[in-house]
């Protein structure tokens, strides 16, 4: 396999970052003590820290990264546009809106799946709107404008819901849903999101051949036996399920799906099918790294993961727009 080396590098990087993520935290414990606690049977505070705080956080980072990287690569492959990304086109913020509505109306408290399902519904609405407005023939400008409009609307509605909420902490919650964070998550969040994410991953991972064929345009792809309607639905459900579930437990984290495929594209010969798996693993590594950075840079200020991703991602986004403009001219 031509890309075996890339695969091994990405997997190794992700594993190293995963272990590093387990070792970083306010509880000042040695490397071996922390890792040993994961395998020890006796109940001590260290084991509690590892199992209840650090392990779910690291697992969620991997899950979020895979979801975002895979969704970004799939959206870009389908729209044939390197600017497509679940955060930028409003999928994440719409999912956050769904999650906030579920939490504030009490649906989430009434039955456990209410939260992820509501976030998923928000995400479905956004993906359908984007495909309807910007479609594959819509071009970059339409895509970005549609994304701005959807993000703005979803963001405003999220703020409105929280504004009207009687909950005194609602205002600080706005920050969480807009920026995303993996702080204080538990195994409950992992088990809540994982089934939906796996459904989404399976859907998106199956799109490789279609994405490759779509490189030559819709007509050519269809004449090569690609069922475009099915591809479209697989993409909508895949992105909505993975990003929706991700947002339901970690808030809206942007730019991962933009940065990761952009960096990895050259290493897979730009081939959309290879970019799918590469971005999935690369996404996990990126979110793990960013989440470690959040804890290392300002350990006692609860820096939001989404803020760090935006600081890294937004300049790259500007660069891509510049490059895109130059290519068109």
């Amino acid at each position: 396999m031509r890309y075996l080396r890339l695969f091994i590098i990405l997997c190794t990087l992700t594993s190293v970052l995963f272990i590093a993520s387990l070792l970083v935290g306010p509880a000042n414990v040695g490397v071996f003590d922390s890792l040993a606690a994961l395998w020890s049977d006796d109940t001590n505070p260290l084991q509690l820290v590892m199992y209840e705080i650090r392990l779910p956080r690291a697992i969620l980072a991997v899950m979020a990264g895979v979801s975002l990287g895979l969704s970004g690569a799939a959206l870009q492959g389908y729209l044939r546009n390197p600017l497509a990304e679940p955060g930028l086109i409003g999928v994440s913020s719409s999912a956050a809106l769904g999650a906030v509505i579920a939490l504030q109306t009490g649906i989430a408290a009434q039955f456990a799946l209410g939260l992820p399902l509501a976030a998923l519904s928000g995400a479905v609405v956004a993906v359908v709107l984007i495909l309807f407005l910007a479609g594959p023939r819509g071009g970059s400008l339409t895509l970005i404008l549609a994304g701005i409009a959807i993000s703005a609307l979803a963001g405003a509605l999220t703020s409105l819901v929280l504004n009207l909420s009687p909950n005194p902490f609602a205002v600080s919650e706005i920050v969480f849903w807009m920026m995303g964070s993996l702080t204080d998550r538990s195994m409950i969040h992992v088990t809540l999101a994982l089934p939906f994410m796996i459904l989404g991953w399976v859907m998106l991972a199956g799109l490789g051949r279609s994405m490759d064929a779509l490189t030559l345009g819709e007509d050519a792809a269809e004449s090569m036996g690609i069922h475009l309607t099915r591809v479209r639905w697989q993409l909508i459900i895949g992105v909505a399920a993975s990003v929706g579930a991700m947002t339901a437990v970690a808030g809206a984290i942007g730019f991962v799906g933009l940065v990761v495929p952009h960096i990895l594209r050259r290493f897979v010969g730009s081939r959309p099918s290879h970019l799918l798996w590469a971005s999935a693993i690369g996404g996990a590594a990126t979110v793990l790294a960013a989440d470690i950075a959040v804890r290392l840079i300002l350990p006692d200020r609860d820096l939001k993961l989404g803020v760090v991703m935006a600081i890294i991602g937004a300049p790259l986004f500007l660069h891509l727009i510049y490059q895109n403009r130059r290519d068109v001219v």
Partner: peptide
């Protein structure tokens, strides 16, 4: 079918583009 719009969306090498024609004949992997 060779459509009129000569679309190649990504900077992929020639050999890979040509081998996309094998997609209907099974897994391209």
């Amino acid at each position: 079918w060779l459509p009129q719009s000569r679309e190649i969306a990504w900077p992929i090498d020639v050999e890979t583009i040509v081998s996309l024609g094998r997609i209907p004949h099974g897994s391209q992997k």
